[in-house]
Nucleic acid binder design. Structure first.
Length: 555
DNA sequence: ACTATTGGCGCG
DNA sequence: AAAGCGCGCCAATAGT
């Protein structure tokens, strides 16, 4: 059953069981409890759900018209466009809640919401692969619920441990405007090696000039290029870069900005805004705190609450696996059946060692042509013609300016006007060699994008289904739900706290940890079946039950 | 003084 | 400039 909902100022308009009501968020949360299986249909989960959640309402399902509308618009470019309010971008989403309460811009009526749902359902019904598309829209919407919940629950963090890590690496926190002692010493050392007093190693221009003046044959200051030299400045410089990155990206300032101190027995929490569908391929993005780029060196600061554990699960080699299933490449699927897929390639005699298998496979997925992956690719192509044929075909479509689709039907954006004009410029009789070169390069670039899109996007779909299924299972575990506030202390319900493309972290009461770990595994199997039915593909996981994130095995 | 871009690097 | 995909964020630098 659907509950049609539209935020209206500080209230929520809902249509349920044929009657319309204007509810407080608390009343809406009651409605969630009295209709536990209802699907909530609303314009924008990120805008509406935080307030419903704060009132204690955690719906089982929702349908996010904005997210789904975007997918459908890409999938059916010739269809009538949806209403203008669907197009509000991430910017509008960012300025949500408070402003909405004061000045409900673009407030919608229930008829509009219901009409838009009907329009989208019509598009789905007319689509070629309606079943898959429905799954995608459900998964995308479930992801939106999870994104809001993870923000509300937060990632358990230890400010103390974080500070210890920083102090061990950088020395004590410096006064504002000063470098930490370790960085200061390194900066002096670097300057001495390069005979350039007052050199600022943070300035690429200054640094490049100094490096070249000292005989290093580099064209940039990237660590990859610098590390090829054996000049004595290399070691301190690389160390400076690493530590400087730690300081600027995840130092004390970051800690103060993003990690909220704990309250009454509950540990600190890192909160970020997850942005479902924030990446063209369907992956999530985040806003704030660089949540998807937290360095591994800081994972020791992610600590479960007392009496709780973290269940950390990592899916191995999702992309080649979804490729195998999409292409019905049973040989590639077999190479990864219940084991490391790269090791499987070695055992099958396709490549000599694991590292070549990995580099070659990544080259296939990303469109690499040179170096080691270029050498290995022909053998992959011969061993797995169906899989390689699939990504090669996607690349050719992109090179011609076409669009491609993921397994569930997310469609790649078409290239823009500028792209076409470059192609046209190269197609006329008087085109210069430069025009042709530019057009060729650009076409190949777009081909690499579409090549990767089908695989990265389908992997994201698998991960969404994995996580959505896991959420469903976690909801029935732990303490009976009365106010739905699993994020409050004393509420013993396991909940998702982190998601990183192919990795999830669940925070759970210790006594439920094994049950959660089993649910994580079963959810991965279910996701595989949801997407690929009976095709024999497996998605092996590394699952660890730990106190600290860094204790999970790293794959 | 402000905004936009670049170089660089963290994650998958 | 990692050989190739997708991101976000910081300081320095360029542009206005």
């Amino acid at each position: 059953m659907d509950v049609i909902a539209a935020p209206s100022g500080a209230r929520l308009l809902v249509a349920v069981d044929g009657s319309e009501e204007r509810l407080t968020w608390e009343q809406a949360a009651d409605l969630v409890r009295t209709h536990p299986d209802a699907r909530w249909v609303w314009p924008d989960t990120i805008a509406a759900y935080p307030r419903l959640l704060a009132a204690g309402g955690r719906p089982a399902r929702c349908y996010d018209l904005r997210l789904c509308g975007r997918i459908l618009a890409q999938a059916t470019p010739d269809a009538e466009p949806g209403p203008a309010w669907l197009d509000a971008g991430p910017a509008a989403v960012a300025e949500r809640t408070l402003l909405d309460d004061l000045d409900p811009v673009g407030e919608l009526g229930l008829e509009q919401v219901a009409a838009e749902l009907a329009r989208q359902q019509g598009l789905v019904a007319a689509a070629a692969e309606a079943g898959r598309l429905r799954l995608l829209l459900a998964a995308e919407s479930a992801g939106a619920l999870i994104a809001v919940e993870m923000r509300a629950d937060g990632l358990p963090w230890s400010r103390r441990r974080h500070d210890e890590i920083l102090t061990a690496a950088l020395g004590p926190r410096p006064a504002i405007g000063y470098r930490p002692p370790v960085l200061e010493r390194l900066a002096v050392e670097i300057a001495e090696h390069l005979g350039s007093r007052q050199l600022n190693p943070d300035s690429p221009v200054e640094l490049l000039r100094a490096l070249r003046a000292n005989g290093l044959d580099v064209s940039s200051t990237s660590k990859w290029e610098i590390s090829r030299s054996d000049h004595p400045v290399v070691a301190p410089l690389l160390r400076y870069k690493k530590l400087s990155r730690l300081l600027t990206a995840n130092g004390w300032t970051w800690l103060d900005s993003w990690v909220e101190p704990g309250v009454e027995g509950r540990a600190d929490r890192f909160r970020t805004d997850y942005v479902p569908g924030g990446v063209v391929t369907g992956r999530w993005a985040t806003n704030g705190g660089g949540a998807l780029q937290i360095p591994k060196s800081l994972r020791a600061a992610v600590v479960a609450d007392p009496g709780w554990r973290l269940v950390v699960a990592d899916a191995a080699q999702i992309e080649p696996r979804v490729l195998a299933a999409m292409a019905h490449d049973t040989d590639l699927a077999e190479a990864g059946a219940d084991r490391d897929l790269y090791a499987g390639l070695v055992d099958a005699g396709v490549v000599e060692d694991r590292s070549r298998a990995k580099v070659g496979m990544l080259g296939a997925l990303y469109g690499g042509t040179t170096g080691e992956s270029g050498l290995v690719l022909p053998r992959l192509r011969q061993a797995y013609p169906r899989a390689l044929g699939m990504v090669d075909a996607a690349a050719r479509v992109g090179e011609r300016g076409g669009t491609v689709r993921t397994w569930l039907g997310r469609t790649s954006p078409p290239p823009g006007e500028a792209w076409h004009s470059v192609q046209h410029a190269a197609a006329v009789v008087e085109a210069s060699a430069g025009d042709e070169r530019r057009a060729r390069t650009q076409a190949r670039n777009w081909g690499r994008f579409t090549r990767n899109f089908v695989v990265q996007g389908t992997a994201a779909e698998w991960a969404l289904c994995w996580m959505g299924e896991l959420r469903r299972r976690l909801r029935s575990m732990g303490q009976a739900e009365h106010d739905g506030a699993a994020h409050l202390p004393g509420q013993g319900r396991p909940h998702l706290v982190f998601f990183l493309h192919d990795e999830i972290v669940v925070h759970t009461p210790t006594e439920l940890a094994d049950e959660v770990a089993a649910a994580v595994r079963e959810s991965a199997e279910t996701a595989g079946r949801l997407l690929f039915g009976s095709f024999p593909i497996t998605f092996p996981l590394d699952v660890a039950v730990v106190d600290r994130y860094d204790q999970a095995e790293d794959s």
